[in-house]
Design a protein around this nucleic acid. Sequence first.
DNA 1: TTTTTCGCTTGATAAATATCAAGCGCATTT
DNA 2: AAATGCGCTTGATATTTATCAAGCGAAAAA
Lengths: 194, 194
Amino acid sequence: MYPSFRKYIDQYTGDTMTDDEFELVRRAFVPKKIRKKQYLLQEGDVCKYLSFIVKGAMRQYTVDEKGNEHIVRFGIENWWMADRESFELLTPTIYNIDAWEETEVLQVTLANLTELKERFPGMNKVTTALDKRGHIAAQKRITAAISLTAEEKYLDLFKTHPIFFQRFPQTMIASYLGISPETLSRIRKNNILK
Amino acid sequence: MYPSFRKYIDQYTGDTMTDDEFELVRRAFVPKKIRKKQYLLQEGDVCKYLSFIVKGAMRQYTVDEKGNEHIVRFGIENWWMADRESFELLTPTIYNIDAWEETEVLQVTLANLTELKERFPGMNKVTTALDKRGHIAAQKRITAAISLTAEEKYLDLFKTHPIFFQRFPQTMIASYLGISPETLSRIRKNNILK
DNA sequence: TTTTTCGCTTGATAAATATCAAGCGCATTT
DNA sequence: AAATGCGCTTGATATTTATCAAGCGAAAAA
C-alpha cells in the first residue's frame, strides 16, 4: 500500500524503514479522495491536515477584493499541500486549496504527526527537509518575482517546472506568474518553444 | 558576552541553557566585524558561514545583466544572514550580501553547526524554527509580490516592517519591493503616512 | 445531438510603471 | 570653504502590462 509514499520517506530519511516503522507511518495518515474543483482548505478555516499528494493536481491561492484568484503554489504527485502557518499555529488561513484533477491525498494532523515523530524519529528529517526545500524554493520565487519581466518569468517557469504546463491550464499559469492570461498568451506567441 | 544571542537561542529552544551549554555555543561561533559596504558574501562564492547579526544592518541581493540590484532580504539585529541553499549544498551562490551599517556578526560553519547540534540538541530547535519562519515569511512575500499593486506592496511593507524604513534608504526599499525608486517616491507623496 | 461552458486568442484601448533627465539639499571628503 | 557624492524629488515621455470585448473551437453537459 502506497509504495511511492514509502519510497518518498525513505529518500528523505536516507534510510530504509522497517515494515513496523512503515506501519506506524501508515496509521498516522488517513487517505482521502478529492474530486475535481472540491476544496481541501477554505479561507477562514484552520488548516487541520498536512496532505501528501499520492495522485492528482492541486493549487493553493488567495482571492482579492475584486474576486481575482492569485495562485501561490501548485502541487502534484509527491508534493505536500497545507498552509504551514495555519497548520502549525492553528490560526485561520487566508488561502484556498482545491483540486484541479481527481486527487488522492494522505492526511496527518499536527497531533498525530508529533506523536509519529516521537515513535519514528526519522520523520523529523522529512519535515526538516520539507521546510528547508520549501524555504529555498520560496526564495528563488521571490527573486524571480521582483527581478524578472513577464516574459522572463514565463521562460524561467518553463525551464524549471515544465510539468506545470502539462497539468494546469494557461490561465492558472498566468495567475501563478502574477500576470494576466492575455499577456501570457501573447508572450507564448512570440516564443515558439511549445 | 553576547547576552542578546543567548537570550535569542533560549527563546527558540523554549528553555534556559546552562553556562556550559552556552560555552559550547559560544565556541562554535566566531565573531566578525563588517564595515559599511563590505561584502559578507559575493556571487560565485560558496556561502561558508551562517551569520547571526549582533549589531548592524545588511542586505542580500542579486545583480542582473543590466547591473541593476534586486534586494531579496534585509537583515538587522537578531536576524540570520546566509544563502541557505549555498550553505547547505556547498554550491556557488547567486547572491551578494553586504553591510549597510557597521555590523557585527557571529559566524558558524556547517561542520561546526552540525557538531554543535550533536552536543547541544536544543540547537536543532533553533534552526528548525528558523526554516519554518523563513518559509512562512517567504510565502507571504510571494503572495504580496504576485497579487498586490506597487502602492499596496508599499503599504504592506510599511505595516509589517516599519523598521526597514528607518534603517535603509528609500532606493533600497524600492528594490526590495521590486519597483523603481521614482515610483516609490511618488507613491509616498500620496500617502501622508510618514 | 444540441447546447453550454471553458480555455485560448486577438485587437483596441487604458492604466500602471519604468526610464531619462535635471535639480536640490545635505553630508562627507578634500 | 569648496567640491563631490548620494539620496530624494519632480517632470516629460516611453514601455510594459492590464483591461475590455469579441470570437473560435473543443470538451462537457443536457
